[in-house]
Design a protein around this nucleic acid. Structure first.
Lengths: 239, 239
DNA sequence: CGGGTTGCTTGACCCAGGTCAAGGCGCGCA
DNA sequence: TGCGCGCCTTGACCTGGGTCAAGCAACCCG
């Protein structure tokens, strides 16, 4: 059901609404938001479309309106390392704004997605006039740094079971009845956790055998969230 | 040989010199530099002294004047993962300025060091007045992001030999006669490369057996830099 | 309906690299 | 001069997890 064409101003107010409720711009004044909405570019992506590739010159930064964007690196041998999957309300590639070296990674839609491109020049100009926006960007980048730091010690200090438990516990908190519906394939979740689909399958199977959860297709049901959390704590403690 | 006490203004101009030649502040006007020099705190650290620990509230960000500061995380089990070793002229912990969650890692001097603490409140205030400084901070953080991203695929996509080769080639470029003098112990270099001292020793030994380099105490001599670089390229290509 | 295609699971195998343990070596210090 | 203490090196061993390969189940489509 495609949205019917609307007058430009209605589209603008819709945009402003989106901008207002994202972390990056949430505190800005209505007029600043209007300025931003004025130069934002709306992009519709099909699953598998690339937003940018490693090394390309920066066009600007991005804000996910709906869907999921997978930011990853690929090694010379073609293996992908997922850096983060950004979902609705999250922004990324701010780093490319202030750096001459272009994008340091690749971004691809893992689901059909709508993404706002915030072009480089005008947003930099606005930052020059609105120091609080600069601070906000700094904050956003600092949280990305944190994510990366978190990934680092995930990958080096924790094994696959621990990473999976961590993911389950985190996503289980917001899931009614402990039922988690995967948005993508299991393979893509495996990649997000930095492992292969085989190992993922085995690890999940082990938890299932221990009656800690049950699996039906793309739905995972946590049967014993407390025990999962306990196991997670145990794993973290002994490494 | 401790420096003799000097009049305050002489100390200030010295400081300004240091500030001017670091990446973070290099383009600022003399008066802005003077303002910064006015609130900077000089810290002398002995080897092993901690600058901050994970979770502590941010006091500000830091600039290394001399020595080496090791920023790392430690797992529940006590293992350390080095994030980066910052040396003279480099700044770090900018991320903590704009984030309410405090420092996300630990920082410790790995050698006797002099570090400038740039306190949070005054530098934030200055950023509010100098948007170009904000852009500069964004740039600095974006390069830290790049470092982390680089570490990520180092740790996941490359083996120890490749990481070591990479390190050797990078440090060999600026070394006269291909002679590299380690600033710390081999163990600490191993940690920096994300491995154990045993594996490090073995890997280095293998390169020595292949006549690509020679080792004498803390001095590594590259006998065949071209072959090292070739090997590095080969390793990167096939993974 | 029958044959692709795509995704999941499982078994078998292998290997990089971590850990434990046992020397050697250099150095400061009494 | 001898002792102790960090470092480094080397050997032996073990294991997490990646890879290859083979079955399966679900689904789409002519």
């Amino acid at each position: 059901m495609p949205t019917s064409p609307r007058p430009a101003d209605a589209k603008l107010t819709g945009l402003i609404g989106t901008l207002r409720c994202c972390q990056l711009f949430s505190g800005l004044s209505a007029e600043d938001l209007a300025v931003i909405a004025g130069f934002v570019v709306v992009l519709k992506l099909a699953k598998g479309d690339y937003l940018f590739h490693e090394g390309e010159a920066s066009r600007g930064c991005y804000l996910v309106q709906s869907g999921a964007v997978n930011v990853h690196r690929v090694s010379a041998g073609g293996k992908e390392q997922v850096i983060h999957v950004f979902r609705s309300g999250e922004s990324f590639a701010e780093a490319s704004l202030a750096s001459p070296t272009g994008y340091p990674a690749n971004a691809r839609a893992d689901e059909p997605s709508t993404v706002l491109l915030i072009p480089k020049e005008p947003i930099l100009a606005l930052i020059g006039r609105r120091p609080d926006l600069a601070l906000r960007m700094l904050g956003s980048m600092s949280s990305h740094l944190r994510v990366l730091v978190g990934m680092l010690d995930d990958l080096t200090l924790k094994d696959v079971e621990t990473r999976l438990l961590n993911w389950l516990v985190k996503h289980g908190r917001t899931a009614p009845g402990g039922t988690i519906k995967l948005s993508g394939t299991k393979r893509s979740l495996a990649a997000e956790l930095g492992t292969s689909s085989e190992t993922f399958s085995r690890t999940l199977g082990r938890l299932r055998d221990r009656r800690l959860l049950s699996v039906a297709g793309r739905t995972i049901t946590l049967r014993d969230p407390a025990a999962l959390a306990a196991q997670l704590r145990r794993n973290l403690g002994e490494t």
